[in-house]
């Protein structure tokens, strides 16, 4: 019997083209991605029919967790004049100035190193009296991890997290949250100041299950310092009319 001879073919597949495609895709994702910034609390924003997109620049985000703790995040424009880093240093200086007006016996001040550390932070929020100590943590081994843990609340009674806030309807005696917001408004960055004025510059981010009491406290504090217009962060819900 004659055998049918099957020609031996190489199983080698040329992967060059595939490699081209994957590199293209990779480039696309690398260029378009904006990383999720690490936040001290995870919240699920409530669904809404509103289709207005959140501002990417010149916005101060007030993150509120269900227990009523507050952290701030700032996103500034990418222009050379007011980069994120520069803006943060300016705000820190300003808030120290406002704080020292009412705390003459225990004034606070920051060293250039501490300011540098602050300019690199993501979300921030510790009582101002503890801010120096908090910023010094970066010099310890694994300082960044320790700072993240402090912000999330590491259970250490010496490490309070969240910007102190209380019911206060007197503009002359601001609490620390109001001091921060005032410092932002009094900064020399006109773009941010204008955004705060027209209401797009302040965004409150709270969980859908957070009680109204907690959100009301934040809103009332903003009203007291005459920031009556602001935005609430929501997630998109299926369009319905």
């Amino acid at each position: 019997m004659g055998r049918v001879k099957i020609a031996k073919k190489s199983t080698f597949i040329d992967m060059t083209a595939m490699s081209d495609v994957t590199v293209l895709l990779l480039t696309f994702f690398m260029l378009t991605s904006t990383f999720l910034s690490k936040e001290p609390a995870t919240v699920i924003t409530p669904p809404s029919v509103s289709t207005e997109k959140v501002q990417e620049t010149n916005v101060v985000q007030v993150l509120v967790n269900p227990e009523g703790k507050i952290w701030l995040t700032m996103n500034n424009d990418t222009s050379a004049n007011w980069s994120n880093e520069k803006m943060r240093v300016a705000v820190l200086d300003k808030v120290a100035e406002i704080y020292n007006e009412t705390h003459k016996s225990k004034p606070i001040s920051f060293t250039p190193e501490q300011k540098y550390t602050f300019s690199k932070l993501g979300a921030f929020g510790v009582p101002l009296a503890k801010m120096g100590e908090f910023l010094n943590t970066i010099n310890e081994p694994e300082g960044q991890t320790k700072m993240d843990k402090w912000l999330e609340g590491d259970g250490n009674p010496n490490h309070p997290t969240g910007i102190p806030i209380s019911w206060n309807q007197n503009d002359q005696t601001p609490n620390e949250f109001q001091m921060w917001m005032k410092a932002m408004r009094q900064s020399d960055n006109e773009n941010l100041v204008n955004a705060i004025k027209d209401g797009t510059g302040v965004a409150i981010k709270a969980d859908q299950n957070t009680s109204f009491e907690v959100v009301h406290l934040v809103m009332d504090n903003l009203q007291t310092i005459h920031m009556n217009k602001f935005t609430l962060l929501t997630a998109l819900k299926g369009a319905e009319e």
């Binding site: 809404s48 207005e52 609430l232």
Partner: peptide, 13 residues
């Protein structure tokens, strides 16, 4: 990557 941007609701008090 975060592809979906959050929406906002403007309120005036």
């Amino acid at each position: 990557t975060t592809m979906i941007k959050s929406q906002t609701l403007t309120i005036a008090l």
